[in-house]
Design a protein around this nucleic acid. Structure first.
Lengths: 361, 361
DNA sequence: ATGAAAGCGCTAACAG
DNA sequence: CTGTTAGCGCTTTCAT
């Protein structure tokens, strides 16, 4: 592993010059540039990331915080992981997967190693101590999902209100006037205020009232068994139900068979739309279900972009967490705060692939 | 952010002493130890990971290589990500998610930054250029899954032969004598020799012959539609089929309805066992299916442990990739080669949670 | 048991 | 446009 010093010697230039051509940080005459490049090639030189990080105080590593609880994470989390890693890689960054509990200790521990230039948080709750800690510590971060208090928090999230509108529009356009909402049942879990559920429920109530439709809201437990139970409850509380919006896509098989118990066939008698799901999940049942696809991949990519933009911008200015007085108050107030809500994409069962999600700004 | 120098000053000792107490690398008298600890507490000192990495030539960062192709990755990949990250974190390491194409360029690029002490590879193919490159580069790594040529490759994989035995045992114990195998259809993908499929198919053929059973093998495309088509083909080529082993768990709904088309109900007329799947996937259909749960989480944890063990062992000895003569030949031949096959755990539909997987050694 | 000092490989002023 | 030089914060012999 050749060092810069060796390259410099071989090219007959100073080590600084080599650094400049490696980083493009300053212009170098064609001849010298050529000699340096050649020397690097002959020696098989590659930049030592660690040394660079130490000297420049930027590691080009970002962390993705995920809840170590794990059980609730599904296919869209996987997409987020992969897309965040891929986008980061494209932008010249590394993505570290960092498990967090519900305490903010993990966050403090994480920041203290000074290994990360910035952080991405996922599965944020309406009240999230990780976000609070990050804010307090002044470490640059972007939230995927959002708390209920988002004045100064950069976030990328799904637009649940819009998704509910789309779902109800679709159902109403099919002629349905009596619509059920199936939410996840958090009984027995430590989860209190889960943003997606809370926002969806509120949007649903509001929109149903505005539209003058009949409705019922039920919750569903895990898997098919949970879905069947939910179907029973739904049919009981709203006997003339013909449309369903469902926010839990691992219970679809059960929903179908639960509805079938009372003679209701999907989609003949009841239309179902899976909220914040995926075409694949919709296609898992027979017949396939219509879905509003969660923009998980886009969220991840956008979040990485927003974070990296902020980091690369801050490169010229003062480094973030100053050890003192006014970290995070006025200094970076000028930096624009990314706050994006991404829409779901409707995929009607049986039709071909959905159009790509538009990029919000 | 206090530095070691500041701590040393405050404790009235040398910087070296501070380093010793921080790393426990040498014994320090109780009094001094105390003073240093206090100083660290008062200053809120935390070790700078980057500086440590530069000086010690060990970053304590490992990379997890995953195929950027992404589409085929499912729930078990998610478990691998999370568990690898969690175990790494427990062992004091960081886990970077690194997307790779099918070329080995990515691997060479990755090694050259000297950011990683070691590497984990997942979704390895029977012939995998990433593994070859890693071997050649001499970077410590552990493979999750295995190529067809594994003399010197440390790996952790699922025991497909054993899984097929378990599945057939189960089916046979239920009285079935005519059994179908459903594999993934790779037509239209660049995948040639996919280990899981190839190993399962071979084990199936062998075992079926030994047991003297009737059988048929079909492939299934994506989702419910693919599963239904597979069911049709299966029924056609093996009309008296009463048992099915299935290696593709996103097509289960379709398999059921496909079988139903010809009047065969699951589980009344046909028993289905999902291979290398999960209880959750089995519970997605109504009624639930029996599964042989893939040990994805255990694989990830074991792989991390094996890799870290190797790294921590090599700490005393010579650093891996020497720049010269005999890197990787005799030097570390003494280090034991981890090669583990983990069994699936049978979860019979309707029963309670499966027993935890035993740890192979 | 503790300290002094020489780097690890690179970046980024500051000179020239 | 190019070179000099002083660190970045820590680990690690080698003395003491």
């Amino acid at each position: 592993m050749a060092t810069m010093r060796e390259v410099a010697a071989r090219a007959g230039v100073s080590i600084a010059t080599v650094s400049f051509v490696v980083n493009g940080s300053r212009s170098v005459s064609a001849g010298v540039h050529r000699r340096v490049t050649d020397a690097m090639g002959e020696l098989g030189y590659t930049n030592n990331v660690v040394a660079r990080a130490l000297a420049s105080k930027r590691t080009r590593i970002i962390a993705l915080l995920f809840p170590a609880l794990e059980q609730r994470l599904g296919g869209i989390a996987l997409h987020m992981f992969m897309n965040a890693a891929t986008r980061a890689s494209e932008l010249g960054y590394h993505l570290v997967l960092w498990p967090t509990g519900q305490t903010d200790d993990d966050v403090r521990e994480l920041v203290s190693g000074r290994l990360f230039d910035g952080v991405l948080v996922m599965e944020v709750q309406l009240r999230d101590s990780r976000v609070e800690a990050l804010l307090e510590l002044g470490l640059p971060f972007v939230s995927m999902g959002r708390t209920s208090q988002n004045d100064r928090v950069p976030y990328v999230d799904m637009d649940f209100e819009e998704a509910v509108e789309q779902g109800l529009d679709h159902l109403q356009s099919l002629g349905h006037r009596s619509i059920g909402l199936v939410l996840e049942d958090f009984a027995g879990t430590p989860i209190v205020g889960y943003g997606p559920t809370a926002r969806t429920e509120e949007a649903f109530r509001t929109s149903i009232a505005r539209r003058g439709l009949r409705s019922a809201i039920v919750t569903s437990g895990q898997s098919a068994a949970g879905g069947r139970q939910a179907a029973r409850e739904l049919v009981e509380s709203l006997p003339d139900v013909t449309g369903v919006l469902m926010l839990k896509d691992d219970a679809t098989g059960g929903l179908q068979s639960g509805l079938a118990e009372s003679g209701r066939e999907v989609p003949r008698d009841v239309s179902v739309v899976l909220l914040a799901s995926s075409t694949a999940a919709g296609a898992a049942t027979e017949p396939a279900m219509t879905t509003l696809n969660a923009p998980g991949a886009e969220m991840a990519r956008l979040a990485v972009e927003a974070l990296v933009a902020r980091l690369d911008a801050g490169a010229g200015a003062a480094g973030a967490a100053g050890d003192g007085t006014d970290a995070g108050t006025g200094a970076d107030a000028a930096a624009e705060l990314t706050q994006v809500l991404l829409p779901c994409v409707l995929h009607v069962a049986g039709s071909s692939a959905p159009a790509p999600a538009p990029r919000a700004s």
